[in-house]
Design a protein around this nucleic acid. Structure first.
Lengths: 353, 353
DNA sequence: CTGAAAGCGCTTACAG
DNA sequence: CTGAAAGCGCTTACAG
């Protein structure tokens, strides 16, 4: 292979000739493999430096590994996924691995098609392992993928026989939300969440949060106030949906948003209608960076996204190193109480004034 | 190559045998190359489907292209880079390309080392082209990289003989900021920006914004009020630095933050000290998603990050398709006036009250 | 339009 | 400890 100016790039062959050894020897030095004398290692290394040699990853991938890990995320729009990327990047720093990111952005109506496409693109590139956030792809499809590539799934609560899982404890987190709201006296609580596709079944994070919401509402005797609002993935979508909700008679006194992006939209709607936390409390999920900004001050559930990303890569590298028994890492969420939630102001009290 | 269960993955050889044609023929069909009869194409395609064949990218990369584009960004923490990623992702959707993202996170003190490392990791993987945000790597080093790989640089105002550039017009943007502040009556304006390394020379975006700030301050006769505050890349860093600044006697009446993340930190400091926009105006740069949230309402400069990311990939694909003359795409910024800036309240007026 | 053969740059047994 | 040889799965001239 030659570049535009006709200069050739050094190959393993060039290094071998320059150092007066075999290609196999150079290969061993590169890989740090066992069985090379110090003299040879030095000679080879100085030839590598002199020729400015860098092994072609594609050629190595043909026989060995690609030194590339794939990570699939649904979209860049949600800050929570960015935190996962951040953690993954941190965990990978200092290793020989590089991250290849495959976004599976399906737009408003999330379906699994883009997830499959992204995962296959990763597999086509023979990545050494895959971290994925694909709540909608079929478990058996994943199992097949995991047969040939180490896989770590994020946020899947299903059973997995051959891939690792990193999950937040969504049941606990949602319960924290509801208990907090109940303790403030709220009864009329709405849940703003994503489309049915995303809450289908009982193993996606949003399905679990929704389930806990409904069950705890009923258990507390507020079953008649259950109100589930479906919306798209962005702050903007949530804003529109929440504004409509808040303009209905008997509007809720509190909104449990399925994630912080949606909570921001709810906050925007509350503000746009001239309301405050005293009238409509908003609580989110994820604890994105901005949640503790004084201008936002969003009560939310911290599920430690950066740490989840870090753990996912750690588990993946463990698998690559040989572990075959699947492992699960559960992140225990904590509640962050801030200014966006307040004690309910009962209508009856208002009337009495 | 066989997977864990011993099942073999189909190779081009298998497809050729199954379809009763040569490997070359299959290759042509895959690539959509000229010179295959319809009958053969159909036969091959049905064999591909039946065998569930997917070409190995690594093998293709050995001779042809890797169908992978690299994008290097300094960090995931800055929402502006996320918007660029978003645009790049959009532009790539529907093509056969996949994006490989190399973060060059150097922590607080940005230096070029991580940029080189990230770019080399991309080159090692023989990506078909590279989009990069590397203000600090040497121009001649980039030129050498661009000799062998199509390159599009984001936010570099230097001359480029063999790579494309996508830039915002930072001189115009910074002038919009200063004019806006002057029109509100501000004279004591501070500039919160990154470390000297990032504003070194006169070709990085931050260097240009800083230069315009200083020149316009002097031209307006406020040279004695020039105050440049250096800080790290995050909102948190900016918060600390700005808080210190606002606690000095003769604090500024307005703060020009070099980007929105820093502006958010400044806003936090303003709020933490119990001040409002009437006392200290804050203006940012980038128009991140959150800037128009009513709780934030940040006056800022929109430099259309998503579009820049989109254009970068478009130019890259043009280069891959054969264009050799370098092209520059300039994004013209616009001012978004919101609630974080207000007319100056002169101390003299205060005294008179 | 179709195919046989060479070759891309590595790694992997295997033999010495 | 060291090296010769085969092979990974494709694409690319080239010949027919």
């Amino acid at each position: 292979m030659s570049n535009v100016t006709g200069r050739k790039f050094a190959t393993i062959e060039d290094v071998a000739r320059h150092a007066g050894v075999s290609r196999a020897a150079v290969s061993k030095v590169i890989r740090g493999a066992y069985g090379v004398s110090d003299t040879m290692r030095e000679r080879v290394n100085s030839s590598i430096a002199e020729l400015n040699y860098r092994p072609r990853v594609a050629a190595r991938a043909m026989r060995g590994s690609s030194f590339t890990l794939g990570i699939e995320i649904p979209e860049f729009g949600n800050p929570f996924f960015i935190r996962i990327l951040k953690g993954a990047t941190e965990a990978i720093a200092g290793t020989d691995y590089q991250l290849i990111i495959a976004p599976a952005d399906a737009g408003i109506e999330t379906d699994a098609v883009e997830g499959y496409r992204a995962l296959e693109a990763l597999a086509d590139r023979q990545v050494d392992g895959i971290v994925a956030v694909s709540p909608l792809v079929q478990a058996d499809w994943l199992a097949r993928l995991a047969e040939r590539t180490p896989v770590v799934m994020l946020g899947r609560h299903d059973d997995a026989s051959n891939y690792d899982r990193v999950v937040g404890d969504d049941a606990v987190g949602a319960a924290l939300v509801m208990d907090h709201l109940f303790s403030l006296g709220h009864e009329r609580i709405a849940h703003v969440t994503r489309s049915e596709a995303v809450t289908f079944g009982n193993s996606t994070p949003h399905a679990i949060r929704l389930g806990v919401y409904e069950r705890m509402m009923r258990a507390a005797g507020h079953g008649s106030h259950v109100e589930v609002v479906r919306t798209g993935p962005t702050e903007r979508h949530s804003f529109e949906a929440t504004r409509a909700l808040l303009q209905t008679p008997n509007r809720p006194t509190a909104i449990f948003a399925a994630h912080d992006e949606l909570a921001l939209g709810a906050l925007r709607a509350v503000g746009a209608l001239g309301l405050t936390a005293a009238e409509v409390s908003v609580i989110g999920y994820d604890d994105i960076d901005l949640a503790d900004h004084p201008a936002i001050s969003l009560t939310t559930v911290d599920q430690a996204g950066v740490e989840m990303g870090r753990q996912a890569v750690r588990l993946l590298i463990e698998q690559i190193a040989g572990r075959s028994e699947p492992v699960e890492y559960v992140s225990t969420p904590t509640l962050k109480v801030r200014g966006s939630t307040a004690p309910v102001r009962r209508r009856s009290l208002l009337r009495r004034r």
